[in-house]
């Protein structure tokens, strides 16, 4: 069990999320089952009031969750100093069998909550609130994911054993590692790069063709291919080491916290990309989403591409 003040802070906030999410969940179920905007009954009137509370709670959880996610990674980095063998957050994530799932779940929840907020904003623009049932339905599903995340986080911190020697990122993210991660190192870098830039090109093309669904779909693929190329190719140029593939180390001070920018760009870009396909809204909004998606994906590509280019200019060779 690891109980540093940072971990305690995360756990306390999780308890608050837990309690509030339960309130929001109960109200969501009621709203989902009984919502009828045409009714003028007292019950419906009460539900309308309660829908404001539910929405406020969900907004609160999301607004705190975004900076808290960064704080979470930050905390893992700090804990890595206490674990023998760990050099960065990757070691802590791998110290228990829950770490990887927890990170993936956290990212999924961020996308989901952000989507919920976009849906809510759209819903509140219309007098007949077309998405009310849908958004609270989505929250009912998101609630279970959130609960899983909270429980998993508690379990993970409880399971971390300071005495145990863990792997460092160099061992986890290497082609010799015996894990699913090593699979991506068997793929050729050139093939991955073609996929990466090809995918981005598709995003650009569908931006001009304004094909919502394919645009969203290509953004979904872009998340995956981006992360793979980041680990297998671009990461090595950030570290200027052909063997270092860790997706966490560049979050540290030594690399000017560049990782936070990389992930924030990727998140914003792909989120708005997905949003353009999943949210039916006014033309103006859709075109705004398109633009934000393209801009941030573009920034992401430029930022990552600049590392190998600069390396080549400085050293005259590729890694």
């Amino acid at each position: 069990m690891l109980l540093s003040p940072e971990v305690l802070a995360l756990l306390i906030l999780n308890v608050i999320f837990f309690l509030f999410a339960i309130i929001a969940f109960i109200l969501s179920v009621k709203i989902f089952l009984k919502w009828d905007l045409n009714s003028t009954s007292q019950a419906q009137y009460k539900l309308e009031k309660q829908s404001f509370l539910t929405a406020t709670i969900i907004k609160y959880i999301f607004i705190i969750k975004v900076p808290l996610f960064l704080f979470f990674i930050f905390t893992l980095d700090k804990i890595s100093g206490l674990l023998t063998g760990a050099m960065c957050a990757a070691g802590v994530v791998n110290a228990t069998s829950y770490g990887t799932y927890l990170i993936l779940l956290k990212i999924l929840n961020l996308y989901l909550f952000a989507y919920w907020l976009a849906l809510h904003n759209e819903d509140m623009k219309h007098e007949h609130q077309p998405y009310t049932k849908m958004k609270f339905g989505i929250f009912i599903a998101a609630f279970f994911l959130l609960m899983t995340e909270i429980i998993l986080e508690g379990v993970m911190f409880k399971a971390i054993d300071i005495e145990k020697v863990v792997d460092c990122c160099g061992a986890i993210y290497s082609s010799s590692a015996n894990s699913y991660i090593s699979v991506i190192f068997r793929l050729k870098a050139s093939l991955l790069l073609v996929l990466f830039y090809g995918n981005f090109l598709l995003i650009v093309i569908f931006y001009f063709l304004k094909k919502r669904y394919i645009f969203a779909l290509s953004n979904a693929f872009f998340i995956i291919i981006s992360l793979i190329t980041l680990i297998s190719f671009f990461g090595t140029y950030i570290y200027q080491l052909p063997t270092h593939h860790c997706p966490f180390c560049f979050l540290q001070k030594d690399y000017y916290y560049i990782g936070y920018f990389i992930y924030i760009f990727l998140f914003i870009g792909t989120f708005y990309g997905l949003l353009s396909g999943f949210l039916r809204t006014s033309e103006k909004e859709i075109s705004k989403n398109y633009k934000i998606a393209l801009l941030f994906n573009f920034l992401y590509v430029i930022l990552l591409t600049s590392y190998p280019i600069l390396f080549y200019i400085k050293n005259g060779v590729w890694l």
């Binding site: 003040p5 509030f20 404001f52 709670i57 900076p67 808290l68």
Partner: peptide
């Protein structure tokens, strides 16, 4: 600097959480 973040997360979100339900009561 992390101490400052830590104290931030231990105070500001908790305060705002405590104001959610009262604010909603008055707003509706």
């Amino acid at each position: 600097i992390q101490t400052l973040f830590l104290v931030f997360f231990l105070s500001v979100p908790i305060y705002i959480a405590a104001t959610i339900i009262p604010s909603w009561r008055v707003a509706t």
